[in-house]
Amino acid sequence: MANTIEVKDLLDAGVHFGHLTRKWDPNMAPYIYMERNGIHIINLYKTTAKLDEAKDALHKIAASGRKVLFVATKKQAKDIVAQLAGDANMPYITERWPGGMLTNFVTIRKAVKKMALVDRMKKDGRYETLSKKERLQVDRMRAKLEKNLGSISDMTRMPAALFIVDTVREHIAVKEALKLGIPIFAMVDTNANPRDIDFVIPSNDDASKSIEIVVKAATDAIKAGLEERKNEKSSDDQSKPEKKAAKKKVAASSEEEE
């Protein structure tokens, strides 16, 4: 597991800054430390505890071989999430959330297959048989699908969980996950309702430094889980010859006794 992030690190990244007090959601009261100059200040001790809980759960998901879908379409989060989720080999949505992404997953998979079809056409030469106008149309379609769905092209089944930056902005994703019973991990600011979130990480979801430190902690936990899975597989592969040899030895002993 990745090391616990200290409160000082979160403080330096501005994770404690919430929204204006008049914009708050009362359900966030347990995570608010105080009010300063009309802004709510998040209790970073609670953030640390909740982040550790989330990391532990993400580690287990990754170790089991399942995927976590990251969702962050706001300007200050999209590049950070694309980089960190990509490094952890996890799918992500950083453009527009495609309606029905989860509840109509079959249709989304069909769109991904269209991308793969165009790629095959370019490899086998069929693309060259199209007219200039048809090639232009195909390229535009492929580019549009790549922009919206490129990062999930390898996601052949539903994700085991969602990690969301800003649940207010990504309310459609939250709604779809709730409908299907998919666990939600999220950075939840003081203006959001934490009640529907399985793993609440009370934090500033507007500042890039705050987003980066929290998302990096999450992806580091995922990487650790993937590494654990890899080591277990390697260990199993190495032990297979030994197990086979042991079985042969037992079989041989049985034959001798007979």
Rank of each mutant, 00 (worst) to 15 (best):
I93A: 02
D79K: 12
R109H: 08
V138H: 01
D119N: 13
K133E: 15
T103W: 11
Y92P: 02
Q137T: 09
A77E: 08
K123L: 14
R120F: 08
E134Y: 06
G125P: 05
I108Q: 07
I80G: 02
A85S: 13
E128N: 09
K74M: 11
A85Y: 06
G99Y: 08
V71T: 00
T129G: 01
K78S: 14
V71S: 01
A111W: 11
E134N: 09
V112I: 15
E128L: 14
S131A: 12
E134C: 04
W97A: 01
D139F: 12
V112S: 00
T73H: 05
K133D: 11
M121W: 05
A77M: 02
S131Y: 13
A72W: 05
A111H: 12
P98Q: 05
G100C: 11
M121S: 04
R96D: 03
D87K: 12
I93C: 02
D139A: 12
R109N: 11
T129D: 03
G125E: 07
T107W: 07
A72T: 00
I93G: 00
L117V: 14
F105H: 10
I80S: 03
A82T: 09
M101N: 01
K133H: 06
M141C: 03
L136T: 02
M141Q: 13
K74I: 10
I80N: 04
A72P: 02
V112G: 00
M121G: 01
G125D: 12
Q83H: 10
R140C: 00
G86H: 10
Q83R: 11
V112T: 07
K114G: 00
S131T: 15
K133I: 15
A85L: 14
D139I: 13
K75Y: 11
G99M: 12
K114S: 13
W97F: 06
D119Q: 15
R135V: 07
K132T: 10
K114H: 12
D87W: 13
A72Y: 01
I80K: 03
T73K: 11
M121D: 01
V112Q: 07
G125V: 13
V112H: 00
K133S: 08
R126I: 07
Q76P: 02
Y92C: 07
V81P: 06
Q83I: 03
V118W: 04
G100W: 13
D79S: 14
R140W: 09
V138Q: 09
I93E: 04
Y127A: 04
E128S: 12
K133C: 00
V81F: 10
T103K: 03
Q83Y: 06
V138T: 14
D124N: 15
K113G: 01
K123F: 09
D79W: 06
V138L: 15
Q76S: 13
T94N: 09
I108M: 04
F105L: 05
A82D: 10
A88W: 03
V106G: 00
K122M: 15
K74N: 08
V138W: 11
E134R: 14
A116I: 15
I108T: 05
A111V: 10
G100V: 02
V71D: 05
L84S: 02
V112Y: 02
K132N: 05
A88H: 06
K75W: 08
L84E: 07
R120G: 01
